[in-house]
Amino acid sequence: MSEKTVTRMDLSEAVFREVGLSRNESAQLVEGVLAHMSDALAAGDQVKISSFGTFSVRDKAARVGRNPKTGQEVPIHPRRVLTFRPSHLMKDRVAAGNKS
């Protein structure tokens, strides 16, 4: 495995290569996509991207947690968490690409 880290810069570079907009505009478009997805999720909506995957917001109930180091009980407040369910296409491509 190569284990490189891909960032926003690499994504905007891909948009730049693929569509031929300026680097600056490509970067803004990547930002726009992430911002719209974040806004929808923050509003509690599900974000479903066909052939990529589904992001959904789940409500977690309050529970009593424990500090594993001290054993002390601490209340964990109700909260919202994000879960991502990859599409079949993503699962298949990731499995095929990393086969040893």
């Binding site: 190569s2 880290t5 891909v6 690499d10 993503m90 491509r93 690409g97």
Partner: peptide, 8 residues
């Protein structure tokens, strides 16, 4: 990227 084993 993930198919290459990279992290995003």
């Amino acid at each position: 990227a993930m198919a290459r084993g990279d992290r995003v």
